[in-house]
Amino acid sequence: MNQYETVFILTPVLSEEQMKEAVKKYEDFLTSNGAEMVHRENWGMRKMAYPIQKKSSGFYQVLEYKSEGNLISRLEVDFKRDERILRFLTVKLDKHAIAYSEKRRKKIKEAKKEEKEAKSSSN
């Protein structure tokens, strides 16, 4: 069971539900085939450094999960078939990368907690 991290970009043309549905489709594909979701993160609509397929912005989504190696090639075949996906990149995480992502997740959690406290104290 290695740990992987997949980043993919959805076309900005989609509506909000279509985007959620697309992300959910891949998450279910992973969990149903024995992968274990570790972390998910979406950066929302983001301007790209160069246009891909004539679109200059895209919806970025990051999935981090533990899974068997052979599941990745099947996942990527699905990515290639789906025309809503502009681009995807799957990376195997080594021990330094795993440590780094844990630290990053903690930071994000703390940031959210502070935000909540700031909001609750402000109103």
């Binding site: 980043v7 970009i9 790209m48 450094a49 160069y50 891909i52 895209g58 970025y60 681009r87 990149l89 990376v91």
Partner: peptide, 13 residues
């Protein structure tokens, strides 16, 4: 190179 692939960074700027 990975960042460039994901259009987070330009190839030429």
């Amino acid at each position: 190179k990975r960042a460039r692939h994901l259009a987070l960074m330009p190839y030429v700027a």
